[in-house]
Write a protein that binds this DNA or RNA. Structure first.
Length: 437
DNA sequence: GCATGATCATGC
DNA sequence: GCATGATCATGC
């Protein structure tokens, strides 16, 4: 009995847990009759603890106190792309609002419970008993400090601060990125609310949990090694979001440090774009996968009021060429037909710029028609006077404005003069409306 | 705060 | 050397 594995050794526990891989609990151990009579009742996690690891029933302490290890069992499902996904969030530990506000990260209930976990993944199948569900992946030894501890800690601090400010009843899973404060408990009218500090209002019971999206990240990383955009097993969107996810909410400075890539100087205008490129791939000036797919990546910097700092520029046009071009042969047309990947940075209330989101976007047809109108107007006016082209106020979507290396970077006009190069821009206000819808 | 004009760093 | 994406700078 005692020599099956060593309860004080993480390594021994891990190796023992591997015996489950590819099998169901029922195939590995002989379950007592009363468990089999339970049919599909009974939590698989509890059954594994009791009948595989043969642990005594635990309270709130660790499952393997001598090894400092917590055991978690969680379900997988098959996603639309045929890959494993989390069946649900992984609930970690209840939140005691009164205690939380007294804690620091290092000595917190959460950190000490979750800093080292052995996670077992089984494939959930409806209609069969839990003990017949198969463990389809190797066990995952999860070390918090190696796994996104920065983000998780920040989430934890955010939740704590909300409770400190007497707003435990306002907690929401959307507050945070990886670690959520999920609802836990009966719900309904009869639910007993929990006391919180700094407010007379009771708050619904909540638990710390890894959100499903974070579980999917863990699973994807664990199930297969996917260094670059894995477009075979994931959609483009999924692959992109997965790449950006670890950086969401971080300040530009934090991301810069994390990537070990720094602004070359005060005039490094492409810095945020270069950062985004490095998040998506590991080097170079562009992302081959995006180029291949014809995806136009653009960085957008939002101010505190939600307005972009700048309009969005496109390649410059030649005065002598545009006058002979058709809309559908123009570069601007081609650009506006493509799919965009917006990398959005946003200034928070303290003036710190943070990565806000990465979103795909296509320009709606009506807006492309308006852009076409601006383009056609430009073509017409270049012939009349290339110095007088459509301005911001003339369209809700686009305008024309200089874009050159300096004042000497000019091109000939139909008037026989030389004029600084110009290009089409999407209005900052238009971009704002796009991001708000 | 915004429109407009004027560059700047990068990578090929 | 140049195209490109992005930002800086100025004036109202």
């Amino acid at each position: 009995m005692q020599d099956k594995y060593d309860k004080s050794s993480v390594d021994s526990i891990y190796k023992f847990a591997q015996l489950l891989t590819g099998k169901s609990l029922n195939e590995v151990v002989t379950l007592p009759q009363e468990v089999q009579n339970l049919r599909n009742r009974g939590e698989l996690g509890g059954l594994v603890e009791a009948h595989f690891f043969e642990l005594p029933p635990t309270t709130s302490n660790l499952d393997f106190p001598l090894a400092g290890l917590e055991l978690k069992t969680t379900g997988l499902k098959i996603g639309p792309k045929g890959t494993y996904q989390a069946k649900e969030r992984l609930v970690l530990t209840m939140i005691n609002f009164l205690k939380l506000v007294e804690e620091d990260w290092e000595n917190s209930t959460f950190y000490n419970k979750c800093k080292l976990m052995l996670i077992l993944f089984y494939l959930y199948e409806g209609g069969i008993p839990t003990y017949d569900q198969r463990f389809v992946l190797e066990p995952l030894l999860f070390k918090l400090d190696d796994h996104d501890a920065e983000v998780i800690r920040r989430d934890w601090e955010f939740i704590k601060e909300k409770v400190v400010s007497g707003r435990a009843h306002e907690l929401s899973e959307g507050d945070t990125f990886y670690l959520g404060a999920c609802r836990k408990g009966a719900g309904g009218d009869g639910e007993k609310l929990r006391p919180q500090p700094n407010s007379p209002l009771g708050a619904k019971a909540r638990a710390f949990s890894f959100k499903p999206s974070y579980m999917n990240l863990l699973i994807a990383g664990h199930a297969s090694e996917s260094p670059v955009l894995d477009t075979i097993t994931q959609s483009f969107e999924e692959a992109t979001y997965q790449r950006f996810y670890p950086y969401l909410g971080l300040s530009v400075e934090q991301i810069s440090k994390k990537l070990n890539y720094f602004k070359s100087g005060p005039n490094h205008k492409g810095f945020l774009r270069d950062i985004a490129v490095r998040i998506l791939s590991s080097g170079g000036s562009n992302v081959p996968e995006l180029d291949k797919a014809g995806i136009e990546m653009k960085t957008i910097r939002l101010q505190q009021n939600g307005s972009p700092r700048e309009s969005m520029s496109f390649p410059s046009f030649k005065y002598l060429e545009i006058v002979n071009e058709e809309w559908e042969d123009s570069k601007f047309f081609e650009k506006l037909e493509s799919k965009f990947l917006f990398i959005v940075f946003r200034e928070d209330s303290s003036g710190v710029e943070r990565l806000d989101r990465a979103v795909y976007w296509n320009m709606p047809f009506l807006d492309r028609q308006e852009a076409q109108r601006v383009w056609a107007d430009t073509k017409r006016r270049v012939l009349v006077d290339a110095r007088d082209l459509p301005k911001t106020r003339e369209s809700s979507v686009a305008h024309v404005r200089p874009k050159a290396r300096d004042g000497n970077d000019t091109l000939p006009t139909p008037q026989g003069t030389f004029l600084v190069k110009q290009c089409f821009w999407l209005n900052a206000k238009y971009i704002k409306s796009v991001l708000q819808s």
